[in-house]
Design a protein around this nucleic acid. Structure first.
Lengths: 137, 137
DNA sequence: CTAGGTTCCGTACGTCAGTACGGAGTCAAT
DNA sequence: ATTGACTCCGTACTGACGTACGGAACCTAG
């Protein structure tokens, strides 16, 4: 089972070793006991499938815009029964995500106009500020 | 013309006074000379329409994901002739914007499934981690 | 003319999410 | 058994974007 060293866990999760340690300090990942096969010395910590899944989940949740603090809460909810809270967190984030997407689409429209205005003539200054006026949130 | 105090400029631009000063330090907004109507004392700095426009542009460009450093460059280009550079900056950001939007849409899909999985049953833990597996960039 | 609110300025602090460093201990291969 | 890579741990630093503080100067209303 728990055969991975921290470097392997990090690689499988697509992050750096320092990041794993950072998540442990933040309570997002468990810090297993040190362990040595032959019982000699203090050994190093070893990680299993479950840790890889948690780590990958953290990355996914981050792309959904959750903060590490919120992800920590989601992870704790995963083991518990408080589906109301889980649903609440998800809904809040979903609304924020909708707004973020709308904002970005709007910004893209404004920016396209900038690029267009810039390309439409080929002399003099590019009217950058004008291209943005009245746009975006 | 230049009749606004810094607090008024800040309010019209939708930011705080300290933020205006911060932008000045970063070279995104000009720092006009102090000026007193009656010629007595050193006076305070006054701001006009142009400053409001610049400030609003900064906010818009930020929602388009430009960093303050890039916005500074855009502002300097606005006065100049280097439309090739302006076009380059805009194109780069446009591509980044497209990717960001796609990522967020993907994250939203994953999150919707989470909320759905959570709502589909009403007992036991909400399968949060499972709902995300294999999703998102 | 005085009380209060503002402005000005430098410097310090805050947040979020890491990244880097350095020395001691540990592990795996030769 | 030695070498070289990796682990552990605390602490410090980064970068992007502000926010707060504190004292002196200033401006405005009563």
């Amino acid at each position: 089972m728990k055969s991975r060293t921290i470097a392997i866990l990090a690689r499988e999760g697509g992050v750096g070793v320092e990041t794993v340690r950072f998540y442990q300090r933040r309570g997002l990942l468990p810090t297993p006991e040190r362990w040595s096969r032959d019982g000699v010395g203090t050994g190093v910590r070893r990680y299993g499938e479950e840790d890889v899944r948690r780590l990958r989940f953290i990355r996914s949740a981050q792309t959904a815009g959750f903060t590490l603090e919120q992800i920590k809460e989601l992870l704790s909810l995963d083991a518990g029964e408080d589906r109301a809270r889980a649903h609440e967190l998800a809904s809040e984030r979903l609304a924020a995500l909708d707004k973020a997407i709308a904002d970005l689409v709007e910004a893209r429209t404004a920016l396209r106009r900038l690029a267009g205005a810039c390309a439409s003539t080929d002399q003099g200054p590019c009217p950058i500020i004008a291209a943005f006026q009245g746009e975006a949130a």
